[in-house]
Simulated scan of single mutants.
Amino acid sequence: MIKVSYLVSYDYFMLLTSIRQLYDYVDKIVVAIDLDRKTWSGNTFEIPESFFVEIRKFDIKNKIDFYFDVFYLPELTPMENESRERNMALSKLGRGWKIQLDVDEYVYEFKTVAAYLKKYWFLSLYPRLTPICLNGKLVTLYRQLPEGYLYIENNEQFPFITNQNTNTQTRTNYRIRNFQTNINVIHQSWARSENEILIKIKNWGHRDDFDTMKYFDFWKSLNVFNYKNYKNIHPLSPEVWNELYFLECTTSDEFIAKFSNKNMQVLSPMPIKKIVKSAIKKILGKE
């Protein structure tokens, strides 16, 4: 089975764009929302009732479950609260391939991704023997301009699919094998309104990791004429976002359509022999 978890707060309005990419090909979707409407930083957010009405109307196959719990603890850092919520949501998925997404992450051509995961269905039968986390490649939408989107495409990897029940930090499990699948995931990331970006940087897990307001001013200064002048612009690891590209379009849906037409999902086969050998060693008590 293929199951998906989402963490939803102030950017709830992006959720359906993400769900539409995969809804027909997954078995279960868990949407985690803080019971007290608190972010990982303890700030309050609101979600209108119309959001829940829209989701229920869309969910014609009854695949979507809302999971309400207390995900903010004041004694924890934002990153610790994030890791805690991701694990709590992960625990609701049960056995199978478990995909951990944020609302602004869009896995296009998911039919191909689903076929890939089902090909390796046996790896989810005894996850203790075949622990693995699958990495994707982020295509980061950086800034929406009147003319289109600035974006980054440089093979930046991130973990988001697992057969395990817990992570060690956020979506990462440092104790198990990580494998690069080449699944492209479009990440809305910084391509939001100025007000939405301010809300994001005041509440996300990286709130205390860099001078967010200085970086916000830099982000605002970019336009279709000057973006080529800047390299290595990631706020934490500059070289991770080494170069900006531009695609003419008006909406994220149009970006997804145009980008996917030129960049089909071509996935890498998993190293099954290595995984099986490792499983045998575990059975024999040699690992």
Rank of each mutant, 00 (worst) to 15 (best):
residue 247 L to S: 11
residue 221 S to E: 10
residue 264 M to A: 13
residue 187 H to G: 02
residue 249 C to A: 10
residue 253 D to C: 02
residue 175 R to L: 13
residue 250 T to G: 08
residue 188 Q to D: 02
residue 169 Q to N: 09
residue 216 F to S: 04
residue 210 F to K: 04
residue 267 L to D: 05
residue 182 N to M: 04
residue 195 N to T: 02
residue 196 E to D: 15
residue 219 W to T: 01
residue 159 P to Y: 04
residue 226 N to A: 07
residue 181 T to L: 07
residue 173 N to A: 08
residue 178 N to Q: 15
residue 198 L to Q: 12
residue 200 K to I: 09
residue 242 N to R: 10
residue 169 Q to T: 15
residue 203 N to Q: 00
residue 260 S to N: 03
residue 250 T to F: 12
residue 161 I to S: 03
residue 240 V to N: 04
residue 183 I to A: 09
residue 208 D to A: 11
residue 165 N to C: 03
residue 167 N to D: 07
residue 269 P to E: 14
residue 215 Y to K: 08
residue 180 Q to A: 11
residue 195 N to R: 10
residue 206 H to S: 12
residue 172 T to P: 00
residue 186 I to R: 07
residue 223 N to H: 09
residue 164 Q to M: 14
residue 179 F to D: 03
residue 195 N to P: 00
residue 243 E to V: 06
residue 205 G to M: 04
residue 230 Y to E: 08
residue 219 W to A: 03
residue 215 Y to E: 07
residue 163 N to C: 13
residue 159 P to W: 07
residue 258 K to Y: 09
residue 245 Y to N: 14
residue 160 F to I: 06
residue 203 N to A: 01
residue 241 W to N: 09
residue 159 P to R: 06
residue 263 N to T: 01
residue 256 I to A: 05
residue 251 T to L: 09
residue 268 S to L: 12
residue 193 S to Q: 04
residue 251 T to E: 05
residue 234 H to G: 06
residue 264 M to R: 14
residue 182 N to H: 13
residue 240 V to H: 06
residue 251 T to C: 07
residue 256 I to Q: 01
residue 243 E to P: 00
residue 254 E to G: 05
residue 176 I to Q: 01
residue 249 C to I: 02
residue 230 Y to N: 07
residue 180 Q to M: 09
residue 264 M to Q: 14
residue 223 N to A: 09
residue 232 N to R: 07
residue 208 D to N: 14
residue 205 G to W: 13
residue 225 F to Y: 15
residue 201 I to K: 01
residue 161 I to A: 03
residue 200 K to G: 03
residue 177 R to L: 14
residue 262 K to I: 05
residue 182 N to D: 15
residue 161 I to L: 03
residue 187 H to K: 05
residue 209 D to T: 10
residue 173 N to T: 08
residue 219 W to S: 02
residue 233 I to V: 11
residue 220 K to G: 09
residue 198 L to W: 07
residue 202 K to W: 09
residue 249 C to W: 05
residue 204 W to H: 11
residue 235 P to Q: 12
residue 241 W to L: 04
residue 242 N to V: 03
residue 178 N to A: 15
residue 191 A to N: 06
residue 169 Q to L: 12
residue 203 N to D: 11
